[in-house]
Amino acid sequence: MLQLTVAGVALGSIYALVAIGFVIIYRATGAVNFAHGDMVTVGAFAALWATTVLEAPILVSWLVAVLMLGVLGMLTYRFVYRPLRHHPFLAVAIATLGLAFVFRGVLFVIFGPQPAALPSPVGGGAVSIGGAVVSRHLLLIIGVTAVLVVSQALFFRHTFLGKSLRATAENQEVARMLGLRTNRIILWTFAYGAGLAAVAGVLLAPVRFVTLDLGFGVLLKAIVGAIVGGFGSLPGALVGGLIVGLAEVFGASLISSAFRDTFAFGILIIILLVRPHGLFQVKAEEKV
């Protein structure tokens, strides 16, 4: 039972990280970034590249991946979002979908179709907690996510940039009236969101293999999590991601692993029937 809970929370943490990155960009710009899942994949490949080609230690490769994705997020803002920002919502959505295929294509050309393994900095071992055997890496996933979520909350609450981000998310025009350089703020939001995707990628890679499909399914589940939590809400993205991860792990183990991917959507349907706006309802005036 404890084993399953840890596995569910760990998987849910990944979904939550991806959902938070996705929602943060949505809140700042009103745009959805369908390339976000493939940014997870790119993050894992970036770390793989750093460990193999640069022969960097694993933790350094994580840093490389996060920095590279930060830059990639900025480029996405500059060359995909910004030219289209005055166009309808759908134009940006389709463009990011196209970007996702670009990422895949480039990764395929560079790394080929072979799955590769990215080791964990804590190795493949397990620890025993109260009789249950729990993988160290799963605990690392949970720990890293917890630290990130808490520092992010403190950042939004207590720093000038964090408050500027919230102001920009709430009303971009008013933020500009206060003299905030919203372009720059949104640029950093894209960098941060993509950086979170990289973290999810390097955390997930040791559990799965590094493949071209690594991030795609993850984004789908993360979006389900974000909707379950109440789309647009950051606490909602966290809680929703965790719920989806737990449902998937418990469902697969107790009911049937053949239906592994259906549990997330089952939860989604149930939640939407009971609470159509998700668990943490985002009020109209909170939306972008």
Binding site: F160, E170, V174, A175, M177, G179, E285
Partner: peptide, 29 residues
Amino acid sequence: VRSGMSHVPEGRGILGQLTVRENLELATA
């Protein structure tokens, strides 16, 4: 705005999700 012109908009443009102090603080940008 940064060069010294404040604009107090129609409908007041309050950032409702931020606290009163945060609204004032951001205006010092």
